[in-house]
Amino acid sequence: MALNSGDYPTLLLGRDEVSPVQEFNASGPSPFLFTCDHYGRLIPRVLGHLGLPEEELGRHIAFDIGIAGVAEALSQALGAHLIAQRYSRLVIDCNRPPQMASSIPLISEATTVPGNEGLTAETAEMRRRAIFDPYHRRIDEIIDQRIAAGRPTVLMALHSFTPVYAGIVRPWHIGTLYHRDKRLPPLLLTRLRAEPDLVVGDNEPYAVSDETDYTIPVHGEARGLINSGIEIRQDLIADQSGQQQWAERLACVLGDIAVLLRDQRLI
């Protein structure tokens, strides 16, 4: 059952509930700064299960399946700072502009989210203040610190995607996502396509835009950082073995790209 505004507490998260922000390798020397907007699937206790059964909360509608394991292992392999967001995208999507309807979805894919029905502007704002703002504020702080220290920063947003969407099979194993910044994506595409077993998407299965994305437009493009998103197909990273294999593969790819960026004096 959805909460109404009268049932909603002053604070969304209890004092014993974890912060939305989780970080790994904060002092890592790599030029790459990784973000993971859909890392976790936690739901604040007061929201219950948003009116959904557990099997729905284990689907892509709630989080990016497999990307947490890849992101952590990749961060470790490269010595790169990773900033991850622990709460479910069904509570508030941290890669959507808060003013967009998709920020707190009433329907995700074909699933109605009862706990998101009838929200007032006040309760929607409470979710933003509790989860969205701390995550993006921390990304801003880290970028500010790196710039002040003269550290090169290449922003990479890590995501995963479903093998089939709306009945359409997606053939890509991995895709690069971008919008205005065209410096990094061609390097990624060339290096990934050199791997003979990969089908690589160019702005597939999604393209970045100001209406559908937040992290890359706001933290990457608006701040002039070299940036790209990476999407990995979820069936390839559904278990720990797949996550480790992809982290190792991407560590090699990104290690090569870091050398190219330095050679081109981009970092």
Rank of each mutant, 00 (worst) to 15 (best):
P163C: 14
V208S: 04
P196W: 04
D213E: 07
M100E: 04
C94H: 00
I107V: 14
A62C: 10
R41G: 12
E195A: 08
D140C: 06
L260H: 15
D133L: 05
T112V: 12
D202K: 05
R59Q: 07
C36V: 12
S108Q: 02
L254Y: 08
D213Y: 10
I226C: 14
I104V: 10
P53H: 07
A149D: 08
E55N: 14
Q22G: 03
V154Y: 03
L266P: 15
L74N: 01
I83F: 08
L106A: 07
G242W: 15
A77R: 15
R233Q: 11
R183D: 06
P152Y: 05
G167T: 05
G14P: 06
D140K: 13
T153K: 04
N95F: 06
V21Y: 05
L261P: 14
A258T: 10
D181C: 06
E195L: 15
P97I: 05
A166D: 15
L52M: 04
I174R: 06
S30V: 04
V169W: 02
Y87R: 11
D202P: 11
G175T: 02
L33M: 06
G224D: 07
R193P: 03
E248T: 15
G167C: 11
N116W: 00
D210K: 08
I174M: 09
T120W: 00
H38Q: 00
D7F: 09
G220W: 00
A80P: 09
Y39S: 07
S30H: 05
V218C: 05
R129Y: 00
G118P: 00
I257Q: 14
T190G: 10
R41F: 12
L42A: 13
D16F: 11
G220T: 02
I147A: 12
L236A: 11
Y206V: 10
G40M: 13
L158W: 08
T176L: 04
P114K: 01
I147L: 13
G58S: 14
A71F: 11
Y135S: 03
L12G: 03
Y135W: 04
G118Y: 01
M126D: 02
F32T: 05
L119G: 00
P186T: 07
R59L: 10
T120N: 02
N4L: 12
H159V: 13
G220N: 00
L158A: 11
S88H: 01
T123S: 14
L189Q: 02
H49G: 13
V218F: 08
E204M: 11
V200Y: 04
A80K: 08
H173M: 12
E56L: 07
D256K: 14
I139M: 01
R41M: 13
P163E: 05
I257L: 15
L250Y: 02
P217F: 08
E141K: 12
E141F: 06
N203M: 04
V208W: 00
I83K: 06
S88A: 03
A62Y: 03
S103A: 10
S102L: 06
G79E: 00
Q264V: 07
L119S: 01
G14I: 04
I83C: 07
P205N: 02
L177R: 01
P53L: 07
A101M: 00
R138T: 02
